[in-house]
Nucleic acid binder design. Structure first.
Lengths: 200, 200
DNA sequence: ACAAGGCTGGACTCCACAGTCCAGTCCGAT
DNA sequence: ATCGGACTGGACTGTGGAGTCCAGCCTTGT
């Protein structure tokens, strides 16, 4: 399936994907046409179809995969460090700061809400992302338990689901209302199970 | 702004909104064209524009308002009864059953993910819905506290945010993965704060 | 009964936008 | 140096779908 790609070609392809991702994040997938992409990435129609023979749909799948990677790599350092005292709070702060800064331009919601429903290929990407993310969090919970910092009777997978859902839900509510408290409060509540807030 | 509407006209308008809502739920907003709506509601283009002079956008706003009403009225009996022992579990079961049955055809996600982002007018509707829903839950928490069934030191508003986010996030994750556990588990965890599971 | 005006049908216009095509240019291997 | 194939530009086509128009029907009030 992979065709011969020179370094130059790979760079162009990458530029298209990244540029399209920016547009999708900013406006939503259905507000982004091939002409917008052309303009934003300094390319021509023929280039778009050269790199993505199946057209717009294939390009959007590539964008989805790209964004899914971004979501994870953004948090990679925090996720790997999850476990020790304070690590959960640090991650929480990073997540909140990230969403506070991006506001409505969120790769995650672009994936789940704009791209996902339409294309089954993209749903798979989203499902994989959630699964990986979930696994990383659950691993962190187990590390905390092994270190004696968290109640060993907790079921790590369930705790991870709960934390992850609080993020997803918090983001949805934040997007709709513009109030970041709807992210902070549920996330804090979900995390309290494993690492009670410092002030308690 | 309201024009004269005879009983017949009101019925037609209502038929259009309800029929469009069905289509949007089934396929997603961007997969529903005016011709689909015509076919599904046995109407003509001119009727569509007669009742919704601003066209598709205005119709979709009406659909959003309609669906928001449905979400609340579906749960009305449970929300009003929130407080007493067992009432939370009953509500939880109803919510889970509802989503299990609808699967991916969910008015709520249609609102938040399909319609919401594009149109600011719809975002307001969604924000109102979330706000009302949040208030109802918080009231239930306070009733439980007043009855001595829940820890009086809990902040009702925060607990309500946490519960609501677990539903939103659970639904998002369920949609993406097809696994309803991602709704059940976080919702149970959020509710455990106020009414510990029967088996505990 | 007979206006007045809400209600309905459906053909028509208009355009945004995905996708095609071909004539070129650049690069890398022999 | 030259040949093949990757790469690029941009004009062109075709179509789906939103919105327009107007002629005719039905209801309601007087």
């Amino acid at each position: 399936m992979t065709r011969a790609l020179t370094a130059k070609g790979a760079a162009t392809r990458q530029r298209i994907v990244a540029g399209t991702a920016d547009l999708v994040r900013a406006r939503g997938a259905d507000q982004v046409g091939l002409d917008d992409i052309r303009a934003a990435t300094a390319t021509s129609k023929s280039q778009l179809f050269h790199y993505f023979p199946d057209g717009r749909a294939e390009l959007l799948r590539a964008v989805a995969a790209h964004e899914a990677g971004e979501v994870l790599s953004d948090q990679q350092p925090f996720l790997d460090g999850l476990g020790p005292a304070g690590s959960w709070q640090a991650w929480r702060d990073a997540v909140v700061a990230k969403y506070q800064e991006q506001g409505v331009h969120c790769p995650l919601s672009a994936l789940t809400t704009q791209l996902g429903p339409a294309d089954p290929g993209i749903r798979v990407i989203v499902a994989d992302l959630l699964d990986t993310w979930h696994t990383r969090i659950a691993d962190g919970v187990r590390r905390a338990q092994a270190a004696g910092l968290a109640d060993p009777s907790l079921e790590a997978d369930k705790v991870a689901s709960s934390i992850l859902a609080s993020i997803q839900g918090g983001v949805v509510m934040m997007q709709a209302t513009g109030n970041i408290e709807f992210l902070k409060v549920p996330l804090d509540a979900a995390l309290a199970v494993i690492e009670p807030p410092a002030g308690a």
